[in-house]
Each structure stands twice: as C-alpha cells, then as structure tokens.
C-alpha cells in the first residue's frame, strides 16, 4: 500500500515479459500479488498517471510503466502529460525543455562545479545543502 509497491510491480513487469502478458489477459491476477490500496488499483486500472505521479512513483518508472507494462496507449500518455502544465514535475518526465548549451553551463560552473554549487548553498534546502 505505497508508491513502493506500485513501483515494484512495474519494475517486476519490466524484467518479466510473461508478467506483462499475464496482466493483459487478467490484470487482477497480477494486481492481487502486490500490497496495493483500492485507490492505487483503481488508478492503475484507469491509467491515472497523475494520481500515480502524485503518489510518488518515480518518473523513470512511471513513463515506461504506463505505456509498456500497463497498456496505456502512447497517444493517451502524451495527452495526459501534455496537460500537466500546472505540474512541472510530471511534465519533465516527457519533455525536459530546451537543453542548456555546454558553454553556458561551463560559464556558470567555472572550473569547479562543487565550488559553484557551494556558492548557491543559500538557495538549497537544508537537506540538499548538507550534501555540498
């Protein structure tokens, strides 16, 4: 009953094509193996990507899971994520936006990215700052 269990199901299916086939034939037989809440099962059955994202499924698993494992048509996935303008996290799973040029990054970072990062410490959360 957690993002962990939903993600574990997607991960297991990614490593076992038979499980994907079984899910196609009989979704409940796969869903019942995992400790999922009724809300989570409903979201999976309904391809509710936003619910699952907000639950905390990692974008890397969510994008491949919805389309490759759980049978969400590509077009529907694109539509669901294109409408996520109010939710930048979900949007970045499919559209990271224009890449920054290497020269721009170098100009910002200088020769030592960690030095650069430490000057930005005040902009970081306490947890992030503790890692610098």
């Amino acid at each position: 009953m957690s993002a962990y269990a939903v993600g574990k199901m997607i991960w297991d299916m990614g490593r076992n094509l038979d499980l994907i086939e079984q899910y196609k034939q009989d979704p409940e037989s796969v869903l019942s193996r995992y400790d999922l809440s009724e809300e989570e099962r409903t979201a999976i059955r309904n391809h509710d990507a936003l619910y699952l994202y907000q639950l905390g499924i990692h974008p890397q698993l969510l994008s491949r899971g919805m389309t490759r494992m759980l049978g969400m048509p590509q077009g529907e996935w694109k539509e669901a994520t294109a409408g996520a303008g109010q939710n930048p996290g979900l949007r970045t799973t499919v559209s990271p936006g224009p890449a920054r040029k290497g020269e721009e990054l170098l100009r910002d970072y200088g020769s030592d990215p960690w030095q650069w990062l430490s000057t930005k410490k005040e902009n970081l959360s306490a947890e992030q700052a503790s890692k610098v």
Partner: peptide, 8 residues
C-alpha cells in the same frame, strides 16, 4: 535506470 535495481 531501474533496470538492475529497485528500492528493495
């Protein structure tokens, strides 16, 4: 990329 490893 969650290919070999997961959160377990």
């Amino acid at each position: 990329h969650f290919v070999n490893f997961y959160l377990h």
